[in-house]
């Protein structure tokens, strides 16, 4: 089982542990991830904000590379995933801007390849069963809430999600490795995205509220699948001390992926007590 892999810019910096744990979990389950050669930035939140053509063009170049490689491409970062999916939708719809981009880069989006978030991958037949079978250190007693934020689920016409107000895929994955996923009402609320940099006080108002709701629900950790959500919730929770884990870190801990002690050191709120 092989997938192309688009790590995104944060994989080598602020989301280092997301990249490490993603690679570790896939390896543990016997999946091979092949990094897209010479991938470029997806444009983040900035490209589409400033210019539609650049917003579609940057992810389109990565799609051209993915198509050449001929394998479905895994995009774990929610922000990158959303940009890539929007570019794919524009290419498939024959959007005039997308046509100009194809001409400029000298490619045609033909049969294409699939674009997978971690949610899409977890929903593939056999993955949840493989997680269950691979558990070495069951997380019995660990209570978590899953937080999806925006870009993994919205807009559904782009993400293909059938459930966008109450998705449950991350919960199923957490429960497959023995943790208890609690119900709460804030799983698709926004963390403030780049307000975390431009207006930290405003991001803090949103994030500390979300973390307080997670604590109220009885969670010992929030589980996410986005580098920006993780950074915002971890940094901007006003000292509530609630660890914010990438779903791949939680799965990796249960699967006994080696090197996981190093992941915990990258967090501002230390999650290591949860796994002792």
């Amino acid at each position: 089982m092989e997938l192309s892999y688009y790590p995104g810019c944060t994989a080598h910096s602020t989301a280092w542990e997301f990249n490490e744990s993603t690679e570790g979990v896939f390896r543990a389950l016997g999946w091979r991830l092949r990094e897209l050669p010479d991938w470029n930035c997806c444009g983040g939140a900035s490209a589409h904000t400033m210019d539609r053509v650049v917003g579609l063009g940057l992810p389109a170049r990565n799609l051209a590379i993915a198509q050449r490689m001929g394998r479905d491409v895994l995009v774990p970062c929610a922000g990158c995933y959303n940009n890539v999916q929007k570019a794919r939708a524009a290419l498939e719809a024959g959007d005039p801007d997308a046509r100009k981009i194809e001409d400029t880069l000298g490619f045609r989006w033909g049969k294409g390849v699939g674009v997978l978030s971690l949610l899409d991958w977890l929903e593939r037949p056999g993955v949840i069963e493989a997680l269950k079978a691979g558990v070495k250190r069951p997380l019995q007693g660990l209570k978590v809430v899953a937080y999806y934020g925006c870009q993994l689920v919205r807009p559904p016409r782009v993400t293909g999600r059938r459930s966008w107000e109450n998705p449950t895929t991350l919960e199923r994955a957490c429960e497959a490795v023995g943790a208890q996923a609690l119900d709460w009402s804030y799983k698709v609320d926004c963390c403030g995205a780049d307000l975390g940099i431009t207006h930290p006080d405003r991001a803090e108002a949103l994030c500390s509220g979300l973390v307080a709701r997670a604590r109220e629900a009885g969670a010992q950790a929030v589980v996410v699948s986005c580098g920006l959500c993780q950074a915002n919730l971890d940094m901007r929770q006003k000292g509530q001390g609630l660890p914010v884990l990438y779903v791949t870190e939680l799965l990796g801990a249960a699967l006994g992926v080696p090197g996981r002690e190093k992941w915990w050191k990258k967090h501002l709120v230390d999650p290591s007590p949860l796994f002792r």
Partner: peptide, 15 residues
């Protein structure tokens, strides 16, 4: 990255 020239083309195509 190697493909910086292609990235530059995308920016030039944009406004």
């Amino acid at each position: 990255i190697q493909g910086k020239a292609e990235v530059e083309k995308i920016f030039r195509l944009g406004g």
